[in-house]
Write a protein that binds this DNA or RNA. Structure first.
Length: 582
RNA sequence: GCCCCCGUAGCUCAGGGGAUAGAGCAGACGCCUUCUAAGCGUCUGGCCGCAGGUUCGAAUCCUGCCGGGGGCGCCA
């Protein structure tokens, strides 16, 4: 640890030992070293020591990082925590990245990063470019994020947008964390709701042909079904018409689903989401025999049982509160059976080591069942992460609008994107933790669009771009800027903020809490705006980014470039654009 | 009846064992001869739903209660 004498080769020391990606573990090592040195010197009793417990103080006055180790080990060591903190600080090794620690009551050891370390992060950021803040957490393992997967029985509504924003951001973060990620949409093109959809479509189709029929009682009353029927009739005429009273033709059903899935795909594309694969539920029952193989595994486990004319998965033997039907008495498999087969395919066929299913909270009752089934297939329970998001309560003019495909009124995702824009909608969805119910007042969102926080973040990016643009017009570029010149408090504060993205990515990738992204984005934007306006406040033209001092200008342009990279990265992870000008 | 989520500033929400509880919007007052004022600064605003408990330390963990939402189908 103190192997590198001060004043010699700090660059080598910093680069070889610590950067933004491993500074925490670096600090842990230093604290552990300090403790063992103190024990060796007899100043600390040789007792069991908890982990170094490196935290980030809320108040920057308490440093960049802090250890609460003294508070945690006080009881075991039978010494006051403040005293332990002083001893640990005393034996803390010299290090290029960290200043001498400070001790604060009741027993914190506070660490401040050196200017040299912070300055080096600017170079690091520029060197990494669009890979800035990438982690190796996933070790290149295959991960899948399956999200939205709404029944193709109608257009996507606002609630689906929440799932889309969350799933897409999570996929991006997992990719940044080192997983090989695939985005997937599970198309429910089999099952009873699909049949009802077909019956509704055929009823509308017949109505257009002048027949007096009504849609099924449990059918889909939305106007879009009339539009869909009309589209098909305009294209193919009456060719799907059968004798009055006959059942709806399967070809019409299939065509309707195909068109609906295509429409959903276009909606999501407008929202900025694209999938690697659209997976057909029906294909589970095709030539590949996925369904049969999955059931065979359960049968081998002795977990299938014929009873009351149906086939049951004996999940109660595996800790569930009841058994569940996989094949109905009429011979048709349930949705549950499909999902078991689907996850058999995800894990055992395609070999994903991490699968994240993003579901609306109305699927809550299905979570435990599916996890149990997946475990019965021989898959590690932790490999399947099911993230539930609470449904969106939509308001228009303060009045609650119910979101239901079967009810009359729905607000579509297309309408939302048209009214408030994809970037704003995504930011809004991501800001809330998935588990929290959220109100979305459309009128308010539109009216306040110029004051929405996402503009604040994008505006920061545009200002950064603008500074680089202005400098370039004067022949000034970041090239050759010496980051060692960056020493103003607001310059270093900006670097400190940029560094946090590594923490954010790790947190989101391990806790599946995407709301940290927009919150961090706002804080980074704040750090930049404060940096930028500090020059104005000071009233000193020498403090601007672009000044008469060319060396200083180039150094600050390097910081501006790095900050732009960091901001663009977090905007990208959220699936938002990073405009060069606004 | 049982299970899950939520209750934090006027509003919408972060924080989910550590230091004086935060942001945006709303409200008050300042700041453009200046690389974008879609910005910055200062101020106002809180029994962190209630009551117990665990802990050196609880908005955070546990128990109970109150309030809001969701789930518990041979629907998906």
């Amino acid at each position: 640890m103190g192997r590198f004498p001060r004043g010699r080769g700090w660059r080598y020391a910093v680069h070889s030992m610590a950067d933004a990606r491993n500074i925490r573990s670096h600090l842990e090592t230093l604290v552990t070293t300090a403790v063992s040195r103190a024990v060796a010197s007899g100043e600390l009793p040789d007792v069991a020591v908890p982990t170094a417990a490196i935290e980030r103080p809320k108040d920057p006055a308490n440093g960049d990082f802090a250890s609460t180790l003294p508070l945690r080990m006080a009881r075991g060591a039978m010494r006051p925590p403040l005293e332990l903190a002083k001893v640990i600080a005393k034996h803390f090794p010299e290090d290029a990245a960290v200043e001498r620690p400070e001790v604060a009551p009741p027993g914190f050891v506070n660490f401040r990063l050196t200017s040299a370390f912070l300055q080096a992060q600017v170079e690091q950021t520029i060197a990494l470019g669009e890979n800035f803040a990438d982690l190796a957490l996933g070790e290149g393992k295959k991960a899948q994020v399956e999200f939205v997967s709404a029944n193709p029985t109608g257009p996507l509504h606002v609630g689906n947008g929440r799932g889309a924003a969350i799933g897409d951001a999570l996929a991006a973060v997992l990719a940044a964390a080192g997983y090989e990620v695939e985005r997937e949409y599970y198309v429910n093109d089999a099952g009873t709701q699909t049949d009802t959809f077909g019956d509704t479509l055929y009823a509308r189709y017949q109505q257009l042909a002048g027949r007096e029929v009504s849609i099924p009682a449990d059918g889909y009353p939305g106007e879009y079904m009339v539009d869909l029927a009309r589209t098909i009739r305009d294209r193919d005429g009456d060719r799907y018409l059968r004798e009055p009273g006959e059942a709806s033709p399967p070809e019409l059903n299939a065509l309707g689903l195909e068109l609906m899935v295509a429409q959903i795909g276009e909606t999501l594309a407008r929202f900025g989401v694209s999938y690697d694969r659209w997976y057909s539920e029906k294909s589970l029952y095709g030539a590949e025999g996925t369904y049969e193989q999955a059931m065979e595994v359960l049968r081998e486990q002795g977990q299938l049982m014929q009873r009351e004319g149906a086939l049951w998965f004996t999940s109660s033997e595996l800790g569930e509160n009841k058994d569940n039907v996989v094949v109905r008495s009429d011979g048709r498999p349930t949705y549950y059976a499909s999902d078991i087969a689907y996850h058999y395919d995800k894990f055992l066929r395609r070999g994903f080591s991490l699968v994240a299913d993003i579901w609306g909270a109305d699927h809550h009752g299905h979570v435990s069942r599916l996890k149990t089934a997946v475990r019965a297939l021989g898959v590690d329970a932790n490999a399947l992460q099911i993230l539930l998001y609470q449904l969106v309560t939509l308001k228009r003019g303060g009045e609650v609008v119910r979101l239901s495909k079967r009810g009359g009124e729905i607000i579509t995702l297309d309408e939302l994107v048209e009214e408030v824009g994809a970037d704003a909608a995504r930011f809004f969805f991501l800001m809330r933790s998935p588990g929290a119910q959220m109100d979305f007042d459309l009128d308010l969102a539109v009216r306040q669009s110029n004051e929405n926080p996402f503009y604040y973040v994008q505006y920061a990016h545009a200002r950064l771009a603008s500074i680089l643009q202005r400098a370039a017009e004067q022949g000034l570029t970041p090239d050759g800027g010496k980051v060692g010149l960056l020493s103003q408090p607001h310059e270093l504060a900006l670097i400190r903020e940029m560094m946090r993205l590594v923490d954010i990515i790790e947190t989101v990738a391990t806790t599946f809490e995407p709301q940290h992204l927009p919150h961090f984005a706002m804080e980074l934007a704040t750090a930049f705006h404060a940096f930028n306006d500090a020059f104005k406040q000071a009233g000193d033209p020498g403090l601007k980014v672009i000044t008469g001092d060319e060396d200083m200008s180039r150094a600050r342009l390097r910081l501006v470039l790095a900050a732009k990279i960091a901001l663009a990265r977090v905007l990208g992870l959220m699936g938002m654009s990073a405009p060069e000008r606004m």
